[in-house]
């Protein structure tokens, strides 16, 4: 079972709906037992970074522990941004620190928020994009982005006047700045791939 972490921010329902739609066993929960027993975790998020980190509260330590134990974790949008070390959205906030890098504002010169469908170049070695070809459009809606400094992270980029990291993968930790649950068929495929990754990992255990 995939557990979508419920921490009182927007958009959690959409993520569950998408997993249900593709026929995955999914549960929305904030119970520590569910989180520990999940085949994989999804950290969604439509919120400002500071609000999201505050709302996650003590769950953040548990999520970190479970992620470091090797369980697949997928962060989406602000959930993805929280994988990194720090953010400067409305103040200074610490993230989970699972991937090296900081969340910073998109520089002036581009329309902000970066909102809409942008083309992502899909590296062959990123499991999340298996079967999707070398590029696809995904839906973005964000004003901050992660500057990835982690040499162990694989990165997929999109072009927004500069190479904007759209997705990372570091061992069992996955993240997408875009919303797979709102990106039509290509997005549903990304979620299906994540579900398959979780299944594979669980068989191994």
């Amino acid at each position: 079972m995939i557990v979508v972490i419920d921490y009182n921010v927007g958009n959690v329902r959409s993520v569950c709906n998408a997993f249900c739609y593709i026929g995955c066993d999914v549960k929305l929960s904030c119970e520590p037992a569910d989180i520990e027993n999940a085949a994989g975790l999804v950290l969604p998020g439509v919120a400002a970074f500071g609000y999201a980190v505050g709302a996650l509260g003590p769950l953040s330590e548990l999520i970190k522990k479970v992620a470091l134990s090797g369980k697949p974790l997928l962060g989406i949008c602000v959930g993805y941004q929280m994988l990194f070390e720090k953010s400067s959205e409305y103040g200074r906030h610490n993230g989970l620190g699972l991937v090296g890098g900081n969340v910073v504002p998109i520089q002036p010169g581009q329309t902000v928020p970066h909102m809409g469908w942008n083309l992502v170049k899909l590296p062959e070695d990123m499991d999340l994009f298996a079967g999707l070809g070398y590029e696809k459009h995904f839906y973005f809606a964000h004003s901050f982005y992660a500057e990835v400094t982690d040499s162990l992270a694989k990165i997929a980029y999109t072009d927004y006047g500069f190479d904007l990291p759209a997705s990372v993968q570091k061992a069992n930790i996955y993240g997408t700045q875009f919303h797979p649950e709102k990106s039509g068929q290509a997005g549903l495929k990304v979620l299906k791939n994540f579900a398959e990754i979780c299944e594979r990992e669980n068989r191994r255990c």
């Binding site: 927007g10 400002a48 928020p113």
Partner: peptide, 9 residues
Amino acid sequence: AAQRFGNQC
């Protein structure tokens, strides 16, 4: 609304 949900929504 922006401070709570982010301005993108």
